[in-house]
Computed example of a mutant assay.
Amino acid sequence: MLITIADILSPAELEEVRAMLGSMRFEDGRATAGWSAKLVKDNEQAREGAALTLIREKVTKAVMGNEVFSLAVRPKALTPLIFARYGQGKEYGSHVDNPLMNGIRTDVSFTLFLADPASYDGGELVIESVSGEEEVKLPAGHLVAYDSTSLHRVAPVTRGERMVMVGWAQSFVRDSAKRELLFDLETAKRGLFAQAGKTPEFDLLAKSSANLFRMWAEV
């Protein structure tokens, strides 16, 4: 399941995050890559320290507090967020994310875009699947979430600078198809309520949705 979510950060929050990142030091991003991903990873990441801890807390709160993210991902835990930048010529070749990070199983990968798309060329997130490739380049403050099992890459930046936050979630529901079914049921349930209120049909749909989550949740 791939989903894009608008306005994870408000314009004011986005400017604050950008200002904080502007004063931080960055280092070679290969330090956090697996042994094979190191061969194709060419970016920089914000250095560990008190400033990074503060910005992580702020953005983690925004991500976890977003209702659409909560319903689509069903997050049980997040890895520490990474803030990465790609200058001209930087890229990240095709790879799959590590299955475990900091003791957390990575079910869902997500990228929050922090730079205006008009400010840089290239730098698309390219997600591979059996049906082909999907390129993602979103407005600043928007997020894309997708299955961590997917091969993906970041296309070379040919102008400007790509700035993003990346993270991974362990979901209460490990299986992607089951998460998508729960999300669809929740969407249908809310649509039915908006049209007709709390009807017997709504109650049946709500019961089925809740009981499926209860059946599939890993706690």
Rank of each mutant, 00 (worst) to 15 (best):
residue 79 T to E: 06
residue 80 P to C: 10
residue 80 P to N: 10
residue 83 F to R: 03
residue 83 F to S: 04
residue 84 A to M: 07
residue 84 A to E: 05
residue 87 G to M: 02
residue 88 Q to D: 00
residue 90 K to L: 08
residue 91 E to A: 14
residue 91 E to G: 00
residue 92 Y to H: 14
residue 93 G to Y: 04
residue 93 G to T: 07
residue 93 G to V: 06
residue 94 S to E: 13
residue 98 N to Q: 10
residue 105 R to C: 07
residue 106 T to S: 13
residue 111 T to H: 11
residue 112 L to F: 05
residue 113 F to I: 08
residue 114 L to F: 09
residue 116 D to H: 14
residue 118 A to Y: 12
residue 118 A to V: 15
residue 124 E to L: 02
residue 124 E to F: 07
residue 125 L to S: 13
residue 125 L to Y: 04
residue 126 V to H: 04
residue 129 S to V: 02
residue 129 S to E: 09
residue 130 V to N: 11
residue 130 V to K: 12
residue 131 S to H: 09
residue 131 S to F: 09
residue 133 E to F: 08
residue 134 E to S: 13
residue 137 K to A: 05
residue 138 L to T: 06
residue 140 A to I: 01
residue 141 G to H: 01
residue 145 A to D: 01
residue 146 Y to N: 07
residue 148 S to G: 14
residue 148 S to F: 00
residue 150 S to F: 07
residue 150 S to K: 04
residue 151 L to H: 08
residue 151 L to T: 12
residue 156 P to S: 13
residue 158 T to W: 06
residue 158 T to M: 11
residue 159 R to W: 02
residue 161 E to I: 08
residue 163 M to F: 07
residue 165 M to F: 09
residue 165 M to T: 15
residue 166 V to L: 15
residue 168 W to P: 13
residue 173 V to W: 01
residue 174 R to L: 11
residue 175 D to N: 15
residue 175 D to K: 15
residue 175 D to F: 14
residue 176 S to K: 14
residue 178 K to A: 15
residue 179 R to Y: 03
residue 180 E to A: 13
residue 183 F to T: 03
residue 183 F to Q: 03
residue 184 D to M: 09
residue 184 D to Q: 08
residue 185 L to R: 10
residue 185 L to Q: 15
